[in-house]
Amino acid sequence: MKKRVVITGVGMIGDFGLGKEDFLNFIEGRKLKQKITEFNLDSYIDTGLLRRADQVSYFASIAAKFALEDANLLNGAEVESKHKFGVIMGTVHGALEHTIDYHKALVLDDPATVSPSLFSNSVINAAVSCISNIFKINGYTLTVPGYAGVHQAVKLATEFINNGNLDMCLVGGVDINNGFLAGAYSSCMEDNKSILNSFGGSGFLVLESLDVALRRGSRIYAEIIDIGITSVDYNKMLKHKIIPIKSVSLQNVDCVFTYAFSDKDSKMREDLLLSKINQDKTSIFNCSDLFGCTFAAAESFQVILGVIKLSGLYNRVLTSYLSLTDVNASLLLGRFSN
């Protein structure tokens, strides 16, 4: 029998600031105390463990730390089996700054003089390795490079917990924008200004098996009911009648948090999905406007927003992420009831 999976912690860092309070203030339109670029990140994490790491590793590690704190898993809280605790993270661009610096160094300098740490910290799984090393997480570690990498990470973690491979898992996403990206995406997006205006960041959640969460006396935000992911374009969606979530009628969802890229196909797929929803009784939040084009950072914030809003207001929340490369991801969250 499948184990039930619940969410017991959230942590985030981004344009809005740092932690749950700043995030909620940003959502509610209140003035922020300070922006992320003004923070001294070193005061939030042991920088010795992140020596020469790329910014994405810093951001991801800090968001992961906040999520672990929120789930009461720091400060001596025991995990029953250290090999049953994992970390899975989505990202589109990974350690882009270090990758660019490494390319530059290789072209302009003698390869023999290039710092080895520049290479090792530019690989895609560097951030997950940092989190695993810092928080001594010994179970499944995976990075999911993809436009719906966070939803796919949530799906993998849920499967591993469902099957008993893991008891708990840190799941999240990270991406940081830089000047390269606006140009790189200009040919396929109708509006790429949001790339220039958004910095990005990282968000993490703690997923747990319900048994473990109850045993630990965890505060439970939400339960994962279903996750659906397809990789088909608008025409295939129409032809094959594909909707990512199958188990529950979309008519029974209280609130939908949508995110669509600003390319034509993603928007058409979003319209198609929304047409299946009873818009008279379902609230709809547009997360693309809220979080800008910050790839896995925006996707992680979208999921976290769904989790936080659900615990206060709704019974069933759907996050719907429609993106480049024909990715359609949906996560159905339910208010926890024993």
Partner: peptide
């Protein structure tokens, strides 16, 4: 964009006309 690790699998999926989830993992 093509340099990203998430771009090869969707290209393959399209070329082979696959209908289903495309997942890329890095470990």
């Amino acid at each position: 964009r093509d340099s990203l690790a998430c771009h090869q699998a969707p290209y393959i999926s399209k070329k082979l006309n696959l209908i289903g989830e495309v997942l890329v993992v890095n470990n």
